[in-house]
Design a protein around this nucleic acid. Structure first.
Length: 480
DNA sequence: TGAAATGTTGGGGCG
DNA sequence: ACGCCCCAACATTTC
């Protein structure tokens, strides 16, 4: 056993079911928890602004520090390039190894590679995903690129149980008082997402515990924009304030305890969402180029429109399509967007405005508290129809129909688009159909109080289908 | 984890 | 009673 090891915290801000912390405690008598403020990541293309996500991360680190102090330890924060910063800390503390949870994004893997060059021994433990991407492969060893067979293979291996979860250590070795630690930046938090492991546990319990838990209505509830039918756990999974393995265990327990078959199936749908998360983590691990390029080679030559005004209207939630605008404003005000809304606004940007999906991906990374390169990129490539197991490119969401189906009374609309508060329920998803008198009566004159539609949908459909077809033809010529 | 156009079916009103 | 038409509901096809 070594005398001292560093527990390098990256996206595992928790004490429950933490395999990296367990490895550190098993391998070293003294364990020093450390977080590195890395300008290379905090100022990167993907995490450059992302104020709300950084606020959530820093808040989560404060909560973690409190939990560590309750157990006799504390968090050390250092700033700089991780290899250099960790090497300096290792010299100060005579630490002989760095323990961390393995992360799969290209930036994370580059960063980890830098540790060996700094002369540090890095010991990686699983935990970001339930199954390692290397362990879910086809018979011939190739990675999966279609979700359904991936999920079948993923589920063929025995699933985790309560007994697999690593308990919280009762006490932790003390950290010497002399070690310096830099203060964390103080950024304004989104009220919708209090950071920390304790909050993640509260949400997990709310969602999965008891016979009437939302997980049992998730099959339908997850689609409703106007109801709290989802787990709202994504930011906590993003930073490991919740172990995905524990989430899967709770889903399986809920399935076992389900009062009837429909409820059981609903719980299974949520488990499937966790498997989608695993799928996109694996896709990014095996195909890191998806961060810059469409997975489908035939759809890499789409002539995207350069339309700064349309893009800005989309970002600001001023497209004139109520469900799109409500969702985009939800994103900016809360740092989160309902998953169905993500599909609707993504389809609108890519298919209706014919704007490059990467610009939408970037905006989501700027605003989302849960912004994760793997899941976000996977979602955008899926909606754009250019990715692994993508939606057919001619599948175009109609925002009016989606709104009517999943926000029937317009409550979601009215919550985030106050201009539409007094529009009659019947027309809240298509306010442009109000007569001028009705617009006056509702205090919502189109073009004055609420924007006129920025595109004529039936027309843009042909434009998009033509652009996608043209890309396929060009690709065929190049291949042939 | 589409939408819209088109096709099919079957109940009911009506002459 | 019967055929005809309308149309809603559902199914199929196409993008």
């Amino acid at each position: 056993m070594m005398a001292t090891g560093l527990w390098w915290i990256r996206r595992d801000l928790r004490l429950r079911d933490n395999q990296s912390l367990r490895a550190a405690l098993a391998g070293a008598r003294t364990v020093i928890p450390v977080f590195i403020l890395d300008p290379g990541i905090l100022q990167s293309r993907y995490h450059g602004r992302a104020e709300q996500r950084k606020a959530f991360l820093f808040g989560g680190l404060r909560r973690l520090d409190e939990a560590l102090r309750e157990r006799g330890s504390r968090l050390i924060v250092r700033e700089g390039e991780p290899g250099a910063a960790l090497a300096a800390l290792a010299r100060e503390t005579q630490a002989s190894a760095v323990f961390a949870e393995e992360d799969y994004s290209p930036a994370a893997r580059r960063r980890d590679g830098g540790l060996a060059r700094a002369g540090l021994r890095l010991l990686l433990a699983p935990g970001v995903s339930i199954r390692h991407p290397d362990r879910v492969r086809k018979a011939d060893g190739a990675p999966y690129t279609v979700f359904t067979p991936f999920s079948r293979a993923w589920r063929a291996v025995p699933l985790p149980t309560e007994g697999d979860l690593v308990p919280v250590p009762r006490s932790l070795p003390a950290v010497a008082g002399g070690l310096s630690s830099v203060p964390l930046p103080d950024l304004p938090l989104s009220a919708a997402f209090p950071p920390g492991e304790a909050e993640a546990q509260r949400r997990l319990v709310r969602f999965t515990a008891g016979e009437t838990a939302p997980i049992y209505a998730y099959g339908e509830g997850r689609n409703r924009l106007d109801q709290d039918g989802t787990s709202v756990l994504s930011p906590y999974l993003r930073f490991g304030m919740l172990s995905p393995r524990e989430a899967a265990v709770r889903a399986l327990q809920a399935m076992d305890r389900a009062p009837e078959t429909a409820a059981r199936n609903s719980a299974e749908v949520w488990l499937t969402e966790l498997i989608w998360r695993e799928f996109y983590l694996a896709v990014l691990y095996h195909f890191p180029s998806v961060l810059t390029t469409a997975f489908n080679p035939a759809l890499r030559r789409i002539a995207w429109r350069t339309a700064p005004k349309d893009l800005e209207a989309w970002r600001a939630g001023r497209t004139g399509y109520p469900v799109v605008d409500a969702a985009m404003r939800q994103l900016t005000t809360t740092g989160w967007m309902h998953n169905r809304a993500r599909m609707i606004v993504a389809s609108f940007l890519v298919k209706d405005l014919l704007v490059d999906w990467r610009l939408g991906e970037e905006w989501f990374m700027d605003r989302l508290v849960d912004g994760d390169p793997a899941a976000n990129n996977g979602g955008w490539q899926w909606t754009a129809g250019v990715g692994t197991d993508a939606a057919p490119y001619f599948r175009i969401f109609n925002p009016t129909l989606q709104g009517q189906r999943f926000d029937p009374e317009g409550r979601f609309i009215r919550r985030f688009v106050p201009e539409l508060a007094r529009v009659p329920e019947k027309l809240v998803h298509e306010p442009w159909r109000m007569t001028h008198a009705e617009q006056e009566a509702a205090g919502c004159v189109i073009g004055k109080d609420y924007p006129a539609r920025i595109v004529d949908r039936p027309l843009v459909r042909d434009r998009t289908l033509a652009a996608y077809k043209r890309s396929q033809e060009l690709a065929r010529v190049v291949r042939g």
